[in-house]
């Protein structure tokens, strides 16, 4: 566990010294602040628009941070050949993958917290009412971001950056279109296409499960039980993704 912690700390240090993370977060903060643009609307509509836009911005920029951060955490070690020296030290390849993921967890936690605090501050400043639903929505967005990070990190252990970006984005989009996707599959008559699409929707994570902002914005209460179940669903995907990443990285030649 100590080795994983040391590798995680180095991953965090790399992220903050490279400064690319700051740019993404800064851009996200500007986007959240720009929701002020909806000030011309009535107060109820303004509340909905600001809240909904901010949730969407946090989620999207969280996705970018998770995907690019995870890819960079692994591929920069391989491309810059630092991995070559690192793996000759007394660490296992499992330590490496878990250390990188733990590092990404802290990077995302810090950046997500900055965006979330800014968002909550904006709501407070605009005197927009908040309830537990706001925090439940934020929490589930964070869990979703952690799932995205685990998938991108796992893919980074055996694919190229370009393929990883395409695959992670594809999974992100498909994962958010599950409802529509299932409707389209229902209309398809081709058995092969239907089977393939069904299999894909069964294997890939349904990111819509983490999206409760539509309900929160209109005041529909979200039970804690739902939050717990979806968190468990997210953890299951994280564990599976990391196990796949560890398997492939253990067989990869450097």
């Amino acid at each position: 566990m100590k080795k994983i912690w040391i590798l995680a700390c180095n991953t965090v240090k790399e992220s903050f010294r490279k400064k690319t993370t700051y740019i993404i977060v800064l851009f996200a903060l500007i986007m959240i602040a720009s929701s002020e643009f909806f000030a011309f609307l009535s107060s109820t509509e303004q509340y909905k628009m600001i809240t909904d836009t901010s949730f969407a911005v946090i989620e999207f920029f969280g996705f970018l941070l998770a995907m690019f951060g995870s890819i960079s955490a692994v591929s920069s070690e391989i491309e810059k050949r630092t991995i070559y020296t690192l793996l000759t030290k007394p660490i296992t390849r499992t330590n490496f993958v878990l250390g990188k993921y733990l590092g990404m967890f802290f990077i995302l936690l810090i950046n997500f917290s900055i965006m979330a605090v800014f968002f909550v501050g904006l709501l407070h400043f605009k005197k927009i009412p908040m309830d537990s639903g706001t925090f439940k929505a934020l929490f589930l967005i964070f869990v979703e971001i952690l799932v995205i990070a685990s998938i991108s990190l796992s893919l980074a252990t055996f694919t190229s950056d370009a393929f990883n970006i395409i695959a992670s984005s594809f999974i992100y989009i498909i994962g958010h279109l599950t409802g529509y996707g299932r409707q389209i599959i229902g209309m398809t008559k081709n058995i092969a296409v239907k089977g393939l699409a069904d299999m894909m929707y069964t294997i890939l994570p349904n990111y819509q499960n983490f999206t409760i902002r539509d309900k929160v914005v209109v005041g529909i209460p979200i039970p804690w039980q739902y939050v717990i179940i979806v968190t468990g669903y997210g953890i299951m995907y994280i564990v599976i993704a990391l196990l796949i990443g560890i398997y492939f990285f253990r067989t990869r030649e450097i």
Binding site: N10, E14, T82, T85, T88
Partner: peptide, 17 residues
């Protein structure tokens, strides 16, 4: 590995450290 020291050819290290 605890007993081994290794210097790679053209060493690349973490440039941010």
């Amino acid at each position: 590995k605890k007993e081994v020291g290794f210097l790679p050819e053209n060493p690349y290290y973490y440039e941010y450290l």
